[in-house]
Amino acid sequence: MSTEKKRNKKKNRTIMRSVILLLLVAAIGYTIYNSVTADEVEVLKVGDPAPDFTLTDLDGETHKLSDYKGQGVFLNFWGTWCEPCIKEMPAMANQYEVYEDQGVQILAVNIAQSNFEVETFARQYGLNFPIVIDRDKSVMTAYNIRPLPTTMLVNPQGEIQRIVTGEMTEQDIAGFMEEIKPE
């Protein structure tokens, strides 16, 4: 009786201690995980639904992200002062010609620049995809964009498939479009 009691007590103690230690370690682990990921895209992760927005392009046409459900959306944030943005634009235009018919839409979101600058740029590089201007940076804020260029690849289900920061080669772009192409 006494030895059995003792054994039980010992078992309980080990369980109790393990539970307390596990809880504390989990709390610390979660904190570290949060702090490590805080620098990156804080709110959005791969697999999250892409926040909906509505912006107007240079022709005055409104583009609402949710209207493109069923298509892949290649959401590129850019500015004319950002060198890698400029470099990848012609490649995007090339691939758009290939993938537009296969159900991939490019939306290039300019960060709060003037109509004149964006129009001049689009004309100069002969850009064939819609360019919208995020005048109050609200879409940039909603997507928590830090460095430019950042490209959000949105799959036909409206979820973020991939987040790309930095310059993409034409090969990269083709590969990404393949990823978000509807079946």
């Binding site: 926040p51 909906d52 912006l55 804020t141």
Partner: peptide, 10 residues
Amino acid sequence: IPEDALPGDT
């Protein structure tokens, strides 16, 4: 921005 409005909907 009202609850039902979207970012960019100035």
